[in-house]
Structure formats: structure tokens, C-alpha cells
Design a protein around this nucleic acid. Structure first.
Lengths: 334, 334
DNA sequence: CTGAAAGCGCTAACAT
DNA sequence: ATGTTAGCGCTTTCAG
């Protein structure tokens, strides 16, 4: 049955009722239909392969059933996992999900946000590429479209909701574990912290620990050459102290693994290793890499649920939600 | 400026022109406007923070600017990579992307497809969970909505486009490499092949190789217990022949790594290992795992570009596009 | 319980 | 070059 242009009117004609009744049937309205008409309508719909047109409906009801996620970088394994959580909550509520990939480019992010605004999304989950709100983001806010920030904040303490890892807690958990394992020197490997509050928070927490425990010697940025990390590790290993590398996330860990392979150091014999994040390969590399797992799936789910709640109750004040990491001890620090 | 309900009519009034002129301005129509009116319109739009309403536009033009991707399982690392490719092509063409996650559940997939149909997507990229076309999928086809299958076919040689890895070629590449490296026994580890033609194609290619090279001794399904794999490997290792494990994808490899860790075998000393797929951790596990890389990003891009092409030219006949894998030799097979 | 009619915001003839 | 008008397909008063 060719349903290219089957409209509610066609169905109505076929069922010998008014378009209004078909609409009522479709929406299961209270003021019920007689069983007879309902039947005829159902039948007509089946026979004609009718599919309601969501645009027309949206135009009238001002609800699109569309949520959007704009991620900083799709190729970071953090994102798909969070996305999975968002998707499941969104779908349970009958929403579809539009996805945007900013590719770590602020102007691209801005363009995406503008497009989504025109698409009349009902809510947005944003892992922002920018420190400060762009024009399109503000425009979205002014239109009263609920926005949930994840992973990273925007404009510091803003008036937007935020769901993110408790970065300070995660770092202190990691450092605590390393200290307990007898490591007395730490090399912290991180991405350049600009543009991502989460990175900055982690790095700050690492630095702050120096006051209570003067063990952190080096912070290496991933924008340095790989050789720089090899050298940094090599330098510290001349000491007699036990040394560990702590990585700010999974991608930074791959970078560190490269250096460790190049340097030929034994883990955990000569060098400890752990990371924030718990990718699926963590148990299998070097016999298992100790991790502070982020509750990524749950984080996405929470964000989406909160967003959906806010869509229904716009008045509730924004809040910051910090999810705890979970220490998973493996061979690389034992 | 509160732009909740700024319409083209409001802008028109403010700019003292007709709605039609504003529309013309928005769409950069040929029959040009005088620089003066254009200016007034631009100004009015700025001042009022006007955002065109995509639904209304779609309703009229019958173009939604929406593409959809429905993936079998978002948590498989294959998907985000392909998605990235699709996203970049879609965005370049000004389309937004709706994403659906079937979670390996056919009925969930069917529900998603129906929702997308109502959303009036202009095209669909589908990694199907089902062997055969569901009602909603057929309905989509009958409505003339272009569909690109990726990774897996549906209904065998169907009348839908397909973009996928050249599985036979990939397997023969892998086997050829193993043979050249002196391995004389192969254990093939795969997911249960039901519901995914790609898995079946790979397994068939492995089995077919037996006629020319009687080296493949065991095929282990991931639905067996982990212990089964340990046992299978243990059994074969009593031989004096060189043995390798070949995994059908990254997830199966994690499973095999578990067994290898449990068995305590040295790679590549006692046991070779390689896989189809090249996840970001491949270089770092066991000193590097030999891979046949899938061109995932390119696969997504090709699929999206072909889809966009088909949207413009519905008449072109469907075709099957097979992308070659690429052998990346690492330590695990040397 | 059901129908008639008025739009939602936009575009595309058709006029002028 | 610009304005008028008639819908796109649906929901929703308001009557009956």
C-alpha cells in the first residue's frame, strides 16, 4: 500500500468519519469514540498504511518529540557510552535523539546549536567545546529550551544544570590508592586543560594534593611530543622511589602506553600505571590497568531524565550533580 | 529578546514588507530583493532574534533535513566510528542526524523505524538487527525513503544499497598472513552468527579456507562459556604445531584476551593472536595485536554520501559496495 | 459521541 | 521587486 501521501483526511473519508475523530483515535482522547467508529478507523489506517505526520502535529502542538545531544568529540570513547545512557532514557519517554558532533570546534558547535534551535528541539544535552556560552547557546537559553550540561561546565557557575564526574573525588581516590600501594612519585598525564573544565578540575586536584603529599613531580600535557613523556619517566626512574603514571583519561592512557612501550619499562614492576576512565580494554592491557571508572552510562541516563523532568517543570532551579567514580584495582598498580 | 513566538509575519510587519519577502530573503531566492528591503529584513530579524521554524517549513516543502542512523548496538566501538563518518557527510550537506540504538533487539528496532517514519526522515542508514525486513522497514521502503544498509545485509540479496567490509577478502588476508608467519593451526573466535550477515560471511570464509588449507581446527562461539575457549586452546597447544587465535571482531578479541590471560599463554611465543577490526587499543595490548582494519569512518562517509545522492536521484539502482580491509602487522603474530 | 472550521508558521504560485 | 493567497497535515475549540 503506497502511503506516500496518506493523510488523516484520507483515512477519515475511508472510515466515513471526520478528520477530528481520526485525530481523537490517534491520540486516545478521553471523550471516547464509539467502539464501532474506532474499529472502522483502525481498519482504514491499516488498509492504507497511514503514518501520522510528525511535523504537522508538532506545528500544532508545539512539541517536537526531539531531544539533541551535542558532543565535543564523538571519537572519544566517553561519548558513546554516555550517549547510550541518554538514548535509553529518551527512548523510554518516547523522544527521538538528534546527535551533533562538534569535533572540538567551537564554531562548528555554534552552527549545530543554531540548526537545532530551528529544529525546535525540546531539550539539549551539551558537552561543550567552549568555555563560554556562544550566541546560539544563549539564544537557546532565552527561548526557554532546557539545557543539561554534561562533563564540563560553561561560564563557570552558570544558571544551567550540570551532570559530571566528581573530579576532585576521583583524583583523590586515585592518589589515595597509589599512596597506599607505596608509590612515592607520580607523573600525571593529561590533555591540555583549556576548553574543558573537567580536565582543569582534575589537574587542579592533582596539584592541590601536593600540599598534603609532595609526591606529584611532573605533569605532562599530551600536546608535548611523545618523547617528552619517555624522557620524563626516564628521569624520575633514576631515583630509588617507586613511581607511577596517572592518566587523566583513556585517550591519555593510550599515549602513556606508547611511551611505556618505547621505554621498555615493566608494569607494575618498574612503573605503576592507572587512569581515570574504565574503557573495555582496561582489564586486558598489561594484565589489567587500575582505573577510576566513570559512571558514564548512568551519567547519560541521569542527565536525560533530569532534562525530561525539566521539560515538564521548567521552573525548577538548576543544579549541579556530581557522580562518584569507582576505584577498580588491577595488576598495574600492585 | 524573547523569541519564543517570533514568526515570519512578525518580522514582516516590523520590516514593513510582506511575509513572502521575508521568506525570499531567508531562502536567498533568485528573483532578488532590493538591497534596501533586504537590509530592513535583516535588521528586523536581528532585533527580534527570529529563528525560522523548521516544522512549518518542512510541512510546506516536504523536506525535513533529517537523516537517521539506526545501529544494532551503540556500545560496540564499531558504531561510533562509522557514525562519525556519517555525521561528517550529513553535516556537510546541511542535514541533521537522528540516532537510534536497537540494542540488538529486533522489536526495539522496529519501533524506532516506525517513529522515524513518522518523523519523515529523508533517508536512513541501517545496521540491522534482523535477518529479514520488518513491517516498519518495508513500510519505509514503500514510502520511497532511501535506505542504506551498512555492515549487514537484510533479506539476502535485497533491493537495498549495502556498504560493508569485504569480509571474504578480510578473512583471506588474515589467514594468508597467519600462514605466511608459519602458523599451522587456527582457532577462530566469533560471535554467534545468527542475525548478522557480516559474521556469517566471515565464518563462511574461514570454513571455506579449509579446502585449500586444512589448518582451521576449531571455531568457538562467544555464547559458549569462557572456559570453553581456554580448554579449546589448551587442547590444541599439546600439539607441536604453531597455533594462532583469529577473532572476528574487537569484542570477540576482548573475550579471547580473557581466556589467554586465564591460560597464562605467552603471545606470540606460545600462541599467535590477530583480529578483524582495529580499535584504538590494538597497538598497546600484548605489545600490539595484528589487525585487519575496517575503514569504519570511510564506510560511514561513503554510506551517507551515497544516501544523499540517492535522495536527489531516487531512480538509480541499488548497489553493493564492498570496502577492503587493511592488514596491520603487529607483534602478536611475529 | 462526532463534525465543522480555524489556524500552527511557512512557501509557492499567482498577481501586480 | 513585492504583495496576496492558498494550502502543507494536523489538533482543537466550539457546536450539535
Amino acid at each position: 500500500m503506497e502511503n506516500r501521501k496518506v493523510t488523516i483526511a484520507d483515512v477519515a473519508k475511508r472510515a466515513k468519519v471526520s478528520p477530528a475523530s481520526v485525530s481523537r483515535y490517534l491520540n486516545g482522547v478521553e471523550g471516547n469514540l464509539s467502539p464501532d467508529t474506532a474499529d472502522r478507523i483502525r481498519q482504514a489506517i491499516d488498509e492504507m498504511g497511514y503514518q501520522p505526520n510528525a511535523w504537522a502535529r508538532s506545528l500544532k502542538t508545539r512539541r517536537s518529540g526531539l531531544l539533541a545531544v551535542v558532543a565535543a568529540d564523538l571519537s572519544n570513547s566517553y561519548v558513546p557510552s554516555v550517549l547510550d545512557g541518554i538514548d535509553s532514557a529518551a527512548n523510554d519517554a518516547g523522544y527521538s535523539l538528534i546527535i551533533g558532533n562538534a569535533k572540538n570546534d567551537q564554531s562548528r558547535e555554534a552552527m549545530l546549536l543554531e540548526r537545532l534551535h530551528q529544529q525546535r528541539i525540546e531539550g539539549l544535552v551539551l558537552q561543550s567545546t567552549a568555555e563560554h556560552s556562544s550566541g546560539p547557546l544563549r539564544s537557546l537559553m532565552e527561548s526557554g529550551i532546557p539545557i543539561m550540561l554534561i562533563d564540563r561546565s560553561v561560564d563557570g557557575q552558570s544558571d544551567l544544570d550540570l551532570v559530571a564526574l566528581d573530579n576532585r573525588g576521583a583524583i583523590s581516590m586515585a592518589l589515595g590508592h597509589l599512596r597506599a600501594q607505596g608509590f612515592s612519585q607520580i607523573i600525571y598525564v593529561t590533555d591540555p586543560p583549556d576548553m574543558a573544565s573537567s580536565r582543569r578540575e582534575r589537574e587542579l586536584a592533582v596539584m592541590a594534593s601536593r600540599s598534603s603529599w609532595a609526591a606529584v613531580r611532573v605533569v605532562v600535557r599530551r600536546d608535548a611530543t611523545p618523547a617528552a613523556l619517555v624522557e620524563a619517566i626516564g628521569d624520575l626512574l633514576t631515583d630509588s622511589e617507586r613511581t607511577a603514571v596517572l592518566c587523566s583519561n583513556a585517550v591519555a592512557t593510550l599515549y602513556a602506553l606508547d611511551a611505556i612501550q618505547a621505554g621498555g619499562w615493566a608494569v607494575p614492576g618498574e612503573l605503576g600505571l592507572m587512569m581515570v576512565d574504565n574503557p573495555d580494554w582496561a582489564p586486558y592491557v598489561l594484565g589489567g590497568i587500575t582505573s577510576v571508572a566513570q559512571p558514564t552510562h548512568d551519567l547519560g541516563r541521569q542527565a536525560a531524565m533530569r532534562l525530561l523532568h525539566r521539560i515538564r517543570h521548567p521552573a525548577i532551579p538548576p543544579m549541579e550533580m556530581r557522580l562518584p567514580g569507582q576505584l577498580i584495582v588491577r595488576k598495574s598498580t600492585q
